[in-house]
């Protein structure tokens, strides 16, 4: 059976089980797909799988809108990992969520240059191994000075749309430092190096699961995930921490805070 038909079946089973009020997935709309909350009894004929949207961010909003609601979601690997990081920071309650686990195809993996294109368990799809981002390897051959120049050139194109921040499921602070005039002066284009982008990069450590939504939303084609991939690798080497790997692992910044405060 076709992959999308299998997802529709799995979503229908979840809806019929009565465990959830609705299932968040994608629906065919206009030029592509759009997020949609399917209910029991809805036609699932227009449920689709691609292009993906940041569903964890939407699920967070829906769960917050009604503290008693239980919802399902069709989750790719990056989306499951995103939810795990959000749960650790009290953004979502995993007990109120049921997932339909979807493995990405090789084509989808290649589109995202994804190193981890499958969830912790698989309901639909076949596991394909991850791929390395060629730009990351290329980046590592550069000297420190060349790297600085590379990022200066990239960030100079920024139009400060804030799309990378706004689309990111891991960006949930009620007040954002990127809107604080002290750190990122309003009305200045591009943001002076290295404000904005490096602040945001630091804030992704221990959270970014490499879902690619920021890079896909960037009107200036800045290869943001190269930077975040390198930071993720550093965090793994230094602290043994992999964002989204398990609900139990404590994020390195949280561990450091606990150690420093003696709790």
């Amino acid at each position: 059976m076709e992959r999308v038909a299998l997802v529709r079946e799995a979503v229908k089973r979840l809806l019929d089980s009565g465990q959830v009020e609705g299932v968040l997935a994608l629906r065919t709309v206009g030029p592509g797909s759009a997020p949609h909350l399917f209910h029991p009894g809805d036609s699932l004929d227009d449920l689709t799988l691609w292009p993906k949207y940041p569903l964890p961010k939407i699920l967070d909003m829906l769960l917050a809108a009604d503290p008693s609601v239980r919802l399902g979601m069709v989750a790719r690997g990056c989306e499951e990992r995103g939810l795990i990081e959000m749960a650790k920071r009290n953004q979502v309650d995993m007990n109120r969520i049921r997932l339909v686990y979807l493995a990405c195809t090789a084509e989808e993996r290649d589109e995202c240059c994804c190193s981890w294109p499958y969830p912790s368990q698989i309901d639909v799809g076949d596991k394909v191994e991850g791929t390395a981002d060629a730009l990351v390897a290329e980046h590592e051959r550069l000297s420190l000075a060349e790297r600085t120049e590379f990022w200066k050139r990239q960030f100079a194109r920024c139009i400060k749309c804030y799309g990378c921040r706004t689309v990111c499921p891991q960006c949930f602070c009620e007040t954002c430092v990127l809107e604080d005039n002290l750190w990122v002066e309003a009305g200045v284009l591009a943001p002076p190096f290295p404000s904005y982008h490096l602040i945001r990069a630091y804030h992704t450590i221990g959270k970014c699961v490499g879902c690619m939504e920021c890079e896909n939303a960037c009107p200036a084609d800045i290869p943001l995930t190269v930077l975040y991939t390198l930071l993720r690798r550093d965090a793994e080497e230094m602290f043994g921490y992999v964002p989204g790997r398990s609900l139990e692992d404590l994020p390195p910044l949280a561990v450091e805070t606990l150690w420093q405060t003696g709790h």
Partner: peptide, 18 residues
């Protein structure tokens, strides 16, 4: 949400659009 696959902006927006 920016519309992915749209012929004009393909999933991108400026700050006003967002």
């Amino acid at each position: 949400w920016p519309a992915k696959g749209h012929p004009l902006n393909d999933g991108r927006l400026c700050v006003k659009g967002w």
